[in-house]
Design a protein around this nucleic acid. Structure first.
Lengths: 210, 210, 210, 210
DNA sequence: CATGAATGAGATTTCATTCAT
DNA sequence: GATGAATGAAATCTCATTCAT
């Protein structure tokens, strides 16, 4: 009756799907992408069977979570690009909000496993591309504003971002949020235009990220 | 003559032990702490049995690798503290050499699994303590020298260090070493004394790391 | 409707569970409690995975078999206590049926391994208790009837029972059932009231069994 | 120099051999014949290598322990046969001393594994044969004396013996020696000539034991 | 000879995925 | 559709036996 592959899911099925993605996101973030599927299903309050009906295998689930997450980053970036008073402000806020985004990064850049899975996914590629485009735009504009040092590229920011933006395991620190905020602030001071020391090599652009 | 519980291993056994740790270090670094034990054994050129004779289970192996690695960091820190012309230089070089050290950090701070294992190991605790002590000393001296901003503590440096010093998965970047060097340089610019923006909260000291 | 932790198993699952216990009982009886789990699974006609889903490890399986078996003994004892014309007859028949019971005994009293596992299981403890209570009752009544020698207690009977009622490895005897029946008969003659020689020590009661 | 296969061992080698057998006997008795070879070696105070030099594999060790043990039983039986005032007394004492002998029996009759190993060993066969011959002699003489019931054979006694003479795991009982003594006494009362109930089947002779 | 290190086959256990209910 | 049971391949770990020191 509705053989359309894009038929929206029935309400309850959609709810299940959302719960699964939310559960998977939380668990991937705290325990990495190797957790038993059964555990994810349990956290989502569904049976494994349901999980597998929605996502044919672990890879599909990882992909779905990554897409969901990258889409969030892209939204943020676009919104900030428009709403923030300056490009520099947009960048700064994007970095501060980064804590929210750590998962995408973790999945995309940390786990060899996840990377293999994601690197050939066209949807993920498209979103990555779009995010980098936004960042590139912000970088150029912030440099034009004179607030961002000239010798960095979008790639530098992305790399730094990926490094900083990883939530350190909360259990290692008494005040994880504060520590993250301070790391970001120090990094921002390092990015600020002014009396800087020269960086080695040349700017890393968005084309340098594979 | 050798009833000593610390009897040194027979020459060949010691060689095997070293090979195993080296192999494990390399593999943990590139694939995380979940790789099959058999793969580690193969990489070390020994049978699984040998691996298990030396390290009763995966946890013991992870501990041994971490200890080995932390000991290396400590050596570096001590050497630099004495040899570098200034405390600031020592810090900077320690951070640049950090690439070498990424594994300890990865094990100690990134993988939930590894963290659980290491947090109760007294040997690891002792080494961590010693490293933090060195860093604390460098921080205070560099601040006295006037080259390090005053509003950071050893904990800030350690946290930043742990974040920056992570080997970004080589597969994500055309020029990983350069990208790392640039990240560190930006961070160092952010740490440098001078016209800085105030950081949120208060300095994170070595006591703030659990 | 089935949030109950004791939710009855699905029909097929229950069937598998029964098959596993039956297979395990048979194999434990003939080969002891160390047989490969895979062999038990094969005998039960299921995969190892199924076995492990039902019983998380070997110990759990051993416990389940023991409980099943003790429950059988208890049923027999209760039935005989009521149906047999005299308490003495009930005891005698219980002993003769002992061949059926050898497994509980073997598990409970013979294998060090199994004993360690069972001694802390409350379900097993409860059943043991109940069986001993029945035996104690039969002993007292048979002594009152004048057919059982006065200088023995339920503990003596249980101990003797445990010793006699062991299936001698079939391979050692041309006629194992006959041999067992004769052993029991001789033992019964030894228990019978009449011109007996005094026993060393004092009666061993049910409280003397730990 | 002494290629004679029967060359007596050097003093220290003989000491090692004895220690190994003693250790193996103790461990087999308490933990069955499946204990790790390394554990036996440790208990004997030698390295595994030494154990394996003396006994090419586990089977050889089991055989050696069994031979050692059967030889002890045979000695006892022969001595008692001569020294005890009557054949009945000899039998009774042999049974009481049985606790000492439990190991042979355990090895020979309980573990399927051990049985397979022992059944084809000519040395063991010879000793078994000899023991049964002694018991048969005692049985006939005790019956001639009028003290042993007529309807039993050497096989009956051996079977009963094997059953009774198993040391119940000490941990199950507050007073294991007493319990054993009482079991034996009851069994002896059952064997005594007098007003007995008829046994099923026919006497089990020594030829009936395979 | 004695020792204990190395090996690898086999046992235990876990978990991704399929399928009956 | 949803559920959770069953499966078996793959990982972990143990231990009998061999062999270098």
């Amino acid at each position: 009756m509705s053989a359309d592959p894009e038929t929206p899911l029935r309400a309850d099925a959609q709810r299940n799907r959302d719960q699964i993605i939310a559960a998977a996101r939380a668990i991937f973030a705290s325990h990495g992408p190797e957790v038993p599927m059964e555990e994810i299903a349990r956290a989502a309050g569904v049976g494994v069977g349901t999980l597998y009906r929605r996502f044919p295998d672990r890879d599909a689930l990882i992909r779905a979570v990554a897409v969901d997450n990258f889409a969030g980053v892209l939204d943020d970036a676009k919104r900030l690009s428009v709403e923030a008073p300056t490009a520099w402000d947009a960048l700064v806020q994007l970095l501060y909000q980064g804590a929210e985004l750590q998962l995408s990064m973790q999945l995309a850049m940390l786990s060899q496993r996840a990377h293999e899975i994601l690197k050939n996914d066209p949807e993920v590629a498209r979103l990555r591309e779009a995010v980098l485009l936004e960042v590139d735009d912000l970088v150029l504009r912030a440099q034009a504003e004179g607030s961002l040092r000239k010798d960095v590229g979008a790639g530098d920011v992305a790399v730094l971002f990926a490094r900083i933006v990883r939530q350190l395991p909360a259990h290692r620190l008494k005040m994880p949020e504060l520590a993250t905020a301070r790391s970001i602030a120090i990094m921002i001071d390092g990015l600020r235009a002014g009396p800087v020391t020269p960086l080695p090599g040349r700017p890393i652009g968005k084309e340098d990220l594979l």
